[in-house]
Design a protein around this nucleic acid. Sequence first.
DNA 1: GGTGTGCATTAACCTATGTTAAAACTGACA
DNA 2: TGTCAGTTTTAACATAGGTTAATGCACACC
Lengths: 172, 172
Amino acid sequence: MDLQKFIEVNGTLVQIKKGELVFAQGELCDYVYLVKTGLLKAFYLTENGKETIKSFIQSGTIIGSLNAAHCQIPSTFSLEALEGCILIQVPFRALLALSKESISISQELIQILLSLSLKKERREFELLTLSATQRFENLCSAEPDLVKKLTQNDIAKYLGITPVALSRIKHK
Amino acid sequence: MDLQKFIEVNGTLVQIKKGELVFAQGELCDYVYLVKTGLLKAFYLTENGKETIKSFIQSGTIIGSLNAAHCQIPSTFSLEALEGCILIQVPFRALLALSKESISISQELIQILLSLSLKKERREFELLTLSATQRFENLCSAEPDLVKKLTQNDIAKYLGITPVALSRIKHK
DNA sequence: GGTGTGCATTAACCTATGTTAAAACTGACA
DNA sequence: TGTCAGTTTTAACATAGGTTAATGCACACC
């Protein structure tokens, strides 16, 4: 049995309306979610109230505050639905426990973590070496359909700039 | 047997002199390294020849271009010794193979990947939400002894700014 | 059709950081 | 001791992006 199947069989269905939070920064969150349908954003709020977006999560993805769940610490980010979403929720510890018993699940978990680390590496690289303009162009060519669905506000927060700056960039 | 032990027993010793590369960006690199002694930097070179530092690697750490090794693609970064280093090298596929046979190794690999993702998450957060000044202060308080060993050039490249900008920040 | 709310654009001004280049400093070594 | 290479500092100027605020636009709702 694969991981996705396991979650579907053993998890519980959760419906989230547009604008609602799945979990909030500062909360403990022991669950991992499989996104069946919908679109979400994972974002940070800094002390001075500024929001920056960590990532957008599309259907088919497994998402959760893995570190929070694993270390039993409060999540560093919030997860919000940008559209109505259907998720399947399963405790992270159930996954870990399962992985202790099944090599194939362990292997799959390793695959997921490796591909997660690949994604983060790309993002780190872009933040470190590219200008906002280049990051925007990259995003547009890598995820054209996603970009269409987002507000410029959210795109800007993802790029690490203000909506005003993004508007300027687009204008050129 | 734990992972570190496995590497020590099955790996081969590699000595790297200061300034030499362990592997270079663009190369295939199937190995994972355990740092016995020394200090290294992992860095990107952009097309226009600019260097940015992804991370510093201190002794006791396991390092490698995991994604490159796993996906059999060229490494996106280079690894260079900042001091004379002693490393132990082992093929990544040997680790993966081992993890397929041993649950405990799988679990350890999962732990390593989780803590790696935690580190990257922190860095992403800092790049996304903090100013260069704040990032510098964070680094100084989190890794005071590491900072002492580095040149300002390398610190700047790690923070994502120029040495000139770092000098200005320090001056204040 | 009118009104309100949220989003996008534009403009004016400000600040952080980049760029280039020169000068000062440091340590290695003949 | 003098010289050289590498590193750090300083200065002057250029640019990207932030901040604030005003305006424009679009859609929902009365």
